[in-house]
């Protein structure tokens, strides 16, 4: 492949040209399904952000819920006749529709924030390890090993015991659990990329190392990263659900989608299907839309697929 070195050097650096960004946006919308995914994703972010203005009930306010309204089927009215529960209620009498929108807010926030932070931390550490190599690399990779084998449950339990419960603690736990994963994935990508011709060429041009790392190597790793991170946003949300299932997640009076599903878990066989079914559907739509967008982004952003 050595005869193509020059071409590789020309196309590898990510160009921050406005026309190219526009082109990418245009290209993104060429795929209908991805466009629909994006629209759904934006709508979900919208309803999550404006949940307090849309929902008939604040499910986190203990004054406004009543166990006498517990486990009502979809379409039932509250016992004082004031509210109709279109998606039913959970065991505490929370309106499922309101709970889902509020829960969406928390799940999205927790999943996206923790994944982005973990991704950034992981990317920087992974790149650094791969480039510096030697002892630093070894130390970092052994810390990564350590972190990867530490069960998420134990991390969450220790944080719970020391710091208590809350959204911020969950995010912290998810970051702690995930960063090492990215670090290792990026490092292995970089090692492969580093020995490619365009990097050799950039070195010959005496470009500073940092520039080679961030503007030449990193963009070439982006497609992999996007694939992994869209999967991982989903798995972060699912992991939060699993922690909730094990009693380590969100405070029970402020359920996330995951906590709603795991609360409804015990009613799966008992006919109160709506307690976990509707949150499940919401989670499914959320994750499918994130992935449709992610898949398309990967195709659009991949410098090598663009010819």
């Amino acid at each position: 492949m050595s005869e193509h070195t020059t071409e590789a050097v020309v196309q590898a650096p990510a160009v921050q040209d406005e026309s190219l960004i526009l082109e990418a946006v245009k290209e993104f919308f060429e795929n209908r399904v991805a466009a629909v995914g994006l629209v759904i994703f934006i709508i979900m972010i919208g309803v999550a952000l404006f949940a307090p203005y849309i929902t008939p009930q604040n499910p986190y306010d203990l004054m406004s819920i009543d166990i006498m309204d517990g486990k009502l089927a979809p379409g039932s009215k509250s016992f004082d006749g004031s509210v109709t529960y279109w998606l039913g209620t959970d065991s505490q009498g929370r309106d499922m529709f309101s709970s889902i929108l509020y829960g969406l807010r928390i799940s999205l926030g927790v999943g996206v924030v923790s994944t982005i932070i973990a991704l950034v931390i992981g990317a920087v550490i992974g790149l650094w390890a791969a480039f510096v190599g030697g002892k630093t690399d070894s130390v970092i990779m052994r810390i990564v090993d350590l972190q990867l084998s530490f069960p998420a449950i134990l991390v969450a339990l220790i944080l719970l015991a020391i710091l208590g419960k809350g959204v911020d603690k969950i995010i912290l736990a998810l970051i702690l659990v995930q960063w090492a994963y990215y670090a290792r994935a990026i490092r292995s990508n970089v090692i492969v990329e580093r020995s490619k011709e365009y990097v050799e060429a950039a070195k010959c041009l005496a470009l500073p190392q940092r520039r080679i790392m961030f503007s030449h190597v990193l963009p070439n790793c982006t497609p992999e990263l996007i694939v992994i991170s869209t999967v991982k946003v989903a798995s972060a949300i699912a992991l939060e659900a699993t922690l909730s299932f094990l009693g380590l997640g969100m405070p029970i009076t402020e359920p996330s989608l995951g906590l709603l599903i795991s609360n409804g878990f015990k009613y799966l066989q008992s006919g109160y299907y709506w307690i976990s079914f509707y949150p499940g559907v919401a989670l499914l739509i959320l994750i499918v839309s994130i992935n449709l967008v992610g898949d398309r982004l990967r195709d659009v952003l991949n410098p090598r697929l663009k010819r």
């Binding site: 999967v231 659900a241 699993t242 795991s262």
Partner: peptide, 18 residues
């Protein structure tokens, strides 16, 4: 690809009981 999304959208415990 679409079906593969199903594989990781739902929590393991939920799928397991299903």
């Amino acid at each position: 690809m679409r079906f593969s999304i199903l594989g990781f959208s739902l929590p393991t415990f939920w799928v397991g009981l299903m």
